[in-house]
């Protein structure tokens, strides 16, 4: 236990070099996964904008690995590790859900500055009305 080592004035808990190297490799692989996921078009796969959630999931795993092994939480009281990972999870849920939503509603946003939106909506109404009369769908609506 690291705490015992501290009590005797010795160095803290030493993580075996193999574990450190393994952790480093795992982090590199997960980084590659993040990059790969960023290039995938989930919408085309009919899976909504899942890039964010997958990326946040990978980030949580990476944070957990760093906290548990590099920061030695695995060898400390388990409650501290639980609090650390729990907090990271909440951050991931917050950012993941908020950004997933942002990317989901982007297509429904009418572009333009706020003052000009009403003009665009009026133009849309006019063209729709004209289209209804002539039976023709004008381009102005798009």
């Amino acid at each position: 236990m690291s705490s015992k080592n501290h009590e005797h004035g010795a160095v803290g808990h030493i993580v075996p070099i193999k574990m450190l190297v393994g952790t480093c490799l795992a982090l590199l692989v997960l980084t590659a996964v993040t990059v790969w996921v960023a290039k995938l078009d989930f919408v085309e796969l009919r899976m909504h904008e899942m890039n964010i959630l997958v990326a946040m999931g990978v980030a949580v795993i990476k944070c957990t690995i760093v906290g548990m092994i590099f920061m030695h939480l695995r060898w400390d009281r388990s409650f501290i590790g639980f609090v650390f990972v729990g907090s990271i999870l909440f951050v991931a849920v917050f950012i993941g859900f908020a950004l997933l939503d942002t990317s989901e509603y982007q297509p429904s946003i009418i572009p333009g500055d706020t003052p000009t939106i009403q003009q665009k909506l009026d133009a849309l109404d006019t063209s729709m009305a004209a289209g209804a009369v002539s039976g023709d769908h004008g381009d102005a609506a798009h």
């Binding site: 859900f97 997933l100 939503d101 989901e104 509603y105 429904s108």
Partner: peptide, 8 residues
Amino acid sequence: TSGQSPLM
């Protein structure tokens, strides 16, 4: 009703 996406 804020404009949040249907999925969320």
